[in-house]
Design a protein around this nucleic acid. Structure first.
Lengths: 213, 213
DNA sequence: CTGTGTGAAGGAGTTCACAGCG
DNA sequence: CGCTGTGAACTCCTTCACACAG
């Protein structure tokens, strides 16, 4: 019986929140039990893969029946660490940063945006929804007070490394980086890059190879 | 000698635009030649992997020397299909959509945002930078006139499937989807999903497993 | 003698096939 | 029987090791 000891494949961790969203929906519709086959239809992943993913962390299902929606949901919440509200900050209150504050405040359950940061006096002191935009010099104070775990980084590339340094110095160990530079960070800091230009450019390859129907 | 016949691994296609950006920088700095080792230092990928990626499409390098920056750049542009400007549209002119229009207009070379679309009378007729926000009913006309290849979809989840239907009907075959639902599209349409909630949630797993230094 | 191009070996993740429990 | 849990086979990609061209 495998447990949470062996470190989980990244691919599995990426899929867990997808299962979670479906389970949230099923809960709302008061569906008590769900099979890997049904999850397969919702997600597009194969049923075997879903069973393997879930079995990696333990045996949550009932043979012959399926998975109890709430049991599975609780377990996934616990595995990811979403059973307690997670505090995050957004660094950079430009257009993208602002959109990300709004997005995570309204569309992302389980996370709480405690503050946004910028260095532009024009925006410091303003609010995005009910989130205050503070000067970056206050980051450490806020991170410590709210035990912030994750920083979303959305500043222009030229300022990205400096902003990352401030983030690391504040004690945050996970950075969700939207800038297009490779951040230099200590080993114990985990950086996840999403580069929208790069992703769009690689899509163009597929747009151009669409000769076949 | 492998050529562009065998269909390229997705992993390779994802990395090509990263090489491209570095080559653009080298061109600006008038660096004529670059080795796989130097590209490795910039990207974090191993030198062998970079050579394999590039060799997949042909032998662009010079043994004992490295790659000629401009030759390699031209080849990558041609492989991806960025040697001609690519026209895209952004569907949804809310906060995220607006940020994406701005982002791609200013930060993404090689692509041209020809229009944004929405159905809210409040925003139809306004401009984001110099990009006009049009009613979705005009999408087909614009797509045909400008031979639009890619649509960026950033509307609320509830409207996402309807918007995707309009996009598909307009003749666009590649959708960059920021909504959190699984779009139902014909087989010949390629959908690339980026779900910011999901990605952030999976990051929280790593934030919580950071016990080790 | 340097750095590319590439077969061979290795590793990670997915699919298959089925044993086993409710 | 039905659906989960899981070893085994397989596929895809990465790393290794080295031949070979400039």
């Amino acid at each position: 019986m495998p447990s949470e000891n062996r470190d989980a494949p990244k691919s599995v961790i990426r899929r867990l929140p997808i299962y979670l969203r479906i389970l949230d929906n099923l809960m709302r519709n008061e569906v008590d039990v769900v099979s890997s086959r049904e999850l397969s239809e919702e997600t597009g992943f194969t049923a075997e893969q879903i069973r393997k993913d879930l079995a990696f962390f333990g045996a949550f299902g009932t043979r012959g029946t399926g998975y109890h929606t709430n049991v599975l949901r609780e377990n996934i919440l616990r595995i990811i660490g979403l059973d307690v509200q997670t505090n995050i900050i957004v660094v950079g209150a430009g257009h993208l940063g602002t959109a990300l504050v709004r997005y995570n405040s309204t569309k992302n359950p389980y996370v709480n945006v405690v503050a946004a940061f910028d260095i532009d006096p024009e925006v410091v002191g303003t609010r995005i929804l009910d989130v205050e935009v503070m000067h970056s010099s206050r980051m450490k104070e806020i991170v410590e007070r709210h035990e912030v775990k994750v920083a979303v980084l959305a500043v222009p590339s030229k300022q990205a490394q400096a902003a990352a340094d401030v983030i690391v110095n504040s004690g945050v160990s996970v950075i969700f980086n939207f800038s297009s530079i490779k951040l230099q960070v200590p080993e114990n800091v985990y950086v996840h890059n999403v580069d929208l230009s790069i992703e769009l450019q690689s899509l163009i390859y597929y747009a151009n190879s669409e000769k076949n129907a």
